[in-house]
Nucleic acid binder design. Sequence first.
DNA 1: CGAAGGGCAGTTT
DNA 2: CAAACTGCCCTTC
Length: 119
Amino acid sequence: MPDNFSAFSSPDDPAGRRSAVYAIMAQIPPGKVISYGELAALAGLGRAARWVGRLMSQLPDDTTLPWHRVIAAGGRLSLPAGSAAGAEQRARLRAEGLTIVKDRVDMRRHGWRSTESSG
DNA sequence: CGAAGGGCAGTTT
DNA sequence: CAAACTGCCCTTC
């Protein structure tokens, strides 16, 4: 029930959306991952998945947010391993115990409960 | 049936 | 209007 997030942010406030996304990211547990779309949806942005990724790029280098736990849908890694962020994501994810195969992660095991059905 | 890869479309800046 | 760290559907192995 992401409706609660509206308590500290309003969808009408462009600045509030960012705070919402940051809040969701901070809620992502270690060893798990979430997709931009879900992150956007949970933040109340709806289908603004692209916008979330954009927000990541805007993140500062001194950010303490687990942005590396945010990946594409289905556990797909869009970030190129040749990029600093791309290599960083894979490096950090694996450091948490994830299993990356062919730029793919097991959402069945590492996917956040966002995609969980009943257990 | 399940997993992987490519193309078109929605949202925000 | 155009661009961007995406998402879902279809097809192939």
